[in-house]
Computed example of a mutant assay.
Amino acid sequence: MAFIDYYKILGISKTATEKDIKTAYRKLARKYHPDLNPDNKEAEIKFKEINEANEVLSHDENRKKYDKYGENWKDENAQQQQHRQSNQQTYSNDEYSDFFESMFGGQGQPSYSRGRNTKFKGQDYNAELQLDLKDIYTSHKQVLTVNGKQIRLTIPAGVENGQIIKIKGKGGLGINGGPQGDLYIKFNIDNHTQFKREGNNLYINVDLDLYTSILGGEIKIDTFNDKVKLQIKPETKNESKVKLKGKGFPVYKKEGLFGDLIITYHIKIPNHLSEKEIELFKELQKLNQNG
């Protein structure tokens, strides 16, 4: 019998972990299962090879012998070899029982004919939704068209850029009456506002004239959804920061909770001064020097 590379059959490396083997086996067994490939002899052969490879590599002792002896790994026990070969040729009910129990959580010992009635979950769908930051400040309803079907969904306020949500049962139809797949939606959020968003907090730069920064006063600024008045303390320094609690972005799926708005003051130096202004600044300069 020609040597069979079980690692190659499962598409894994010799350093694969037990989890890697299990994942590869489930993926390939689903792909080549007879229910999905009726009257396909090549798929049936492939299906048997996959199960044979899994039988060896998923058992520590078998895998050690296979790694050590290669194509002669079965020669250690001729009786066991004959038993395995017999099972491979007839593909017994026990093998199908192991397959269905491990992959689909089945019970009992189903025969080949019962295996054809196994229920498969439908294909999962993936979609992307382009939104603006203003769109997700409040929750709203939207209709998506996925694979020709219209799906109504509520988009919660506060979703993040790149966030993926799952809508259960909105994917492809199941096989043999199995459950429908799920729909995964990825949100791509554009920001055309003057605010920078980091998590639930918003950041904005506010220009402050020199006179107000020195003497103090009152200014009015924009928040994300309204305007507020702020009292400026005398002698406010450039790059000073002020936090407005609860004036940031809504917290995802926590109605009524908001992050904070962080304001950074940038003091503007006056230009195009009049002669009078220059004269006054010179007087201030002298006072400062004399002081």
Results as ranks from 00 to 15, higher is better:
Lys186Asp: 02
Leu210Val: 01
Val146Gly: 05
Lys14Gln: 14
Asp135Leu: 07
Gly169Pro: 12
Ala78Asp: 10
Gln85Leu: 15
Gly174Val: 03
Ile167Glu: 12
Asp132Met: 11
Asp132Phe: 00
Lys253Met: 12
Asn77Gln: 04
Asp135Lys: 12
Asp190His: 13
Tyr69Gln: 02
Gln81His: 10
Gln163Ile: 03
Tyr69Glu: 09
Thr23Trp: 01
Glu18Val: 00
Ile267Gly: 05
Asn54Thr: 08
Glu44Phe: 02
Asn188Gln: 07
Asp20His: 07
Ala24Gly: 08
Ile232Ser: 07
Ile221Thr: 06
Ser240Tyr: 12
Lys227Asp: 12
Asp98Gly: 01
Gly174His: 13
Pro270Val: 04
Ala16Ile: 09
Gln130Thr: 09
Leu244Asn: 07
Glu71Met: 10
Arg152Pro: 03
Gly259Asn: 06
Ile165Val: 15
Phe104Thr: 04
Tyr125Asn: 09
Ala16Glu: 02
Ile4Leu: 13
Gly174Arg: 08
Leu173Ala: 14
Asn40Ser: 13
Tyr203His: 10
Lys168Ile: 05
Asp60Phe: 08
His266Gly: 07
Tyr125Met: 08
Tyr6Trp: 09
Lys247Trp: 00
Leu153Trp: 05
Leu208Asn: 01
Gly248Trp: 03
Ile204Leu: 11
Ile45Val: 10
Asn126Trp: 00
Ile185Gln: 07
Tyr265Arg: 11
Leu202Arg: 04
Gly169Phe: 04
Ile165Met: 15
Asp260Glu: 05
Gly216Arg: 06
Gln109Phe: 01
Thr118Cys: 10
Gly148Glu: 07
Tyr66Glu: 09
Asn238Phe: 02
Gly171Asp: 08
Tyr265Val: 14
Arg26Gln: 11
Asp132Thr: 10
Ile50Met: 07
Gly171His: 05
Ile165Gly: 00
Glu61Gln: 06
Gly181Ser: 08
Val159Arg: 01
Leu208Phe: 00
Gly158Ala: 01
Glu42Phe: 14
Phe224Trp: 14
Ser213Pro: 11
Tyr7Asn: 06
Pro250Gln: 03
Ser13Tyr: 00
Asn238Asp: 15
Asn201Ala: 07
Glu76Phe: 14
Gln89Cys: 02
Arg197His: 01
Leu202Ser: 02
Ile21Met: 03
Pro270Ile: 05
Ile45Pro: 00
Ile267Met: 03
Gln194Thr: 14
Lys268Trp: 03
Ile9Asp: 05
Phe47Thr: 00
Asn117His: 13
Lys119Asn: 03
Glu55Arg: 14
Lys247Glu: 06
Asn126Pro: 02
Gly105Thr: 10
Ser86Trp: 12
Ser92Ile: 09
Gln88Ala: 10
Leu208Gly: 01
Lys134Met: 11
Asn238Gly: 03
Ile262Glu: 06
Ser58Asp: 04
Thr23Lys: 06
Ser213Tyr: 04
Glu239Met: 15
Lys227Met: 09
Glu283Gln: 14
Asn200Pro: 00
Gln163Asn: 03
Gly108Ser: 02
Gly115Met: 13
Glu55Lys: 09
Leu57Asp: 09
Gly148Arg: 10
Ile165Glu: 14
Asp20Arg: 03
Ala29Cys: 07
Ala53Asn: 12
Thr154Ile: 09
Gln81Arg: 13
Phe3Leu: 11
Val159Thr: 02
Tyr265Lys: 11
Asn271Ala: 13
Asn205Ile: 01
Tyr112Lys: 15
Pro34Ser: 01
Tyr91Thr: 01
Ala43His: 04
Lys227Pro: 08
Tyr211Gln: 08
Tyr184Pro: 01
Glu95Arg: 11
Ser92Arg: 06
Lys41Val: 11
Lys237Leu: 08
Ser92Cys: 05
His59Cys: 15
Ile167His: 15
Ser113Asp: 15
